[in-house]
Simulated scan of single mutants.
Amino acid sequence: MLDVLSGFLVVVIVIALGFLVGRRDLLGPRAVYTLNMFVFWIATPALLISFLSQADLADVFGENLAVVVLSSVLAGLVGFLGFRHLAGRNVPDSLVTLLACSYCNGSNLGVPLVTHVLGDPTASLPVIIFQTAVYGPAVVLLLDVSTRRQARTEDGGATAHHSIGPLVRELVVGIVRNPLIIAAVAGIILATLRTTADWTLPELIAEPVATLAGAAVPVALIAFGMSIAQVRVLGSTSPKRSVWVAAVVKTVIHPLIAYALARLLFDASGAALLAFVVVAALPTAQNVFTYSQRFGTNTVLARDAGVVSTLLSIPSIAVIALLLG
């Protein structure tokens, strides 16, 4: 437990350093974007290749993936039904809330956090693959259908401007070009070659990959701290109550659902249980805001829930580490 908590304390210290750097604007106005792009396109793929190539694939895609799928769907339903029936909002707005309550930041923040807290970045790989390849595209298609139907209703039968063909192509291309998916496939191939043919990467290639992998965690956490210092949320136009509810569902209810599923279905305990719950406690991903902007629905909630859930995820994961570590 002390190892987990001390590792988490290091995460908090590095984030705080990034916050101070952002407050003083020491790295310039576009530094957060540049650092995040380095992490997303170079360092995190290297980290996934480095660890996944040495991992046991059955551990990565077994119970972990099942808990990710079931807990995400259930947490999303809590958000959708609450926003739809209790708040009385339309279907597109409720679908964005569904994502805000269940779509994890598994890459930019998830990989660094689980790497440092759990010591294994592959713990976040199932959620990245599920969300990128299945969950996100499925909800986006529902958003497309519902917003077009909503537009027809509001315009008295007029056709909305969204086209489902380009959207499907955009999603497919996005999945194929996603560096994390590419890295995951490469890592799986390398792991398979290691177990079946006893072949590993030559040292000349493995060393640079490991060096780049080492930059993923600190650079991502610095960028995260800087982004907190530069974002202003919960303004006069924000649905503050809904934002807080969505953030609490994401960082408290979602991990509780994951805990219950892991215990009841798989009798998980120890490090495995901790990994399941920590991954579920990751905050709302930036993709949710991107999707809401794409369809022009519930954008303020998507943006603010991402920031507030990120702030809440720090104490949430700390408590989880304390109780389960």
Rank of each mutant, 00 (worst) to 15 (best):
A302Y: 02
V14I: 11
S313W: 05
F80N: 00
L234E: 03
G214N: 03
I314H: 04
L47G: 03
G18W: 12
I15C: 07
I222K: 08
L193H: 04
V60R: 07
K240Y: 03
G225T: 09
N105P: 12
I257P: 00
S50V: 08
S309K: 03
T44A: 13
Q54L: 13
L221P: 03
I317R: 06
L35H: 03
L17C: 15
Y259I: 08
T211G: 04
I182W: 01
L5P: 10
A191F: 04
A138S: 12
K250V: 07
T200W: 13
R303T: 04
T237A: 15
G18M: 12
V4E: 11
L323P: 04
I181H: 04
L125N: 07
Q131H: 15
L265E: 12
R263S: 08
A220K: 01
L47Y: 02
V11N: 06
F61H: 01
L47A: 09
R303N: 09
R294Y: 12
S163M: 00
S102T: 07
I129C: 08
D267R: 08
Y33I: 12
V172D: 01
A46P: 02
V67I: 15
L9E: 01
A123K: 02
Y103I: 11
V12A: 05
L57S: 04
L256R: 02
L141E: 01
I228F: 05
M226W: 07
S163V: 04
N36R: 07
T211N: 12
N108I: 14
N178Q: 04
T153C: 01
L77P: 10
C104Y: 13
T299W: 10
E203Q: 14
R148F: 05
R263E: 04
P202A: 06
G165W: 09
A281L: 10
S309Y: 06
Q286G: 13
G110D: 06
G76C: 12
V78L: 14
I175T: 05
V134L: 14
H116P: 00
I205T: 09
M37G: 08
H162Y: 14
F276C: 05
F38S: 14
T147P: 03
T237N: 09
G225M: 09
T310G: 15
N287G: 05
G325V: 02
A160K: 09
F8A: 12
T237R: 14
V39D: 02
L311D: 12
F80S: 11
V139Y: 00
F51I: 11
G157D: 01
T34Q: 13
A138G: 00
T299Y: 06
R263G: 03
A246M: 03
S313D: 12
V307Y: 02
T147L: 02
A281D: 11
L95N: 13
L35E: 03
P92C: 09
A210M: 11
T97S: 11
G106L: 02
L190I: 00
S242A: 10
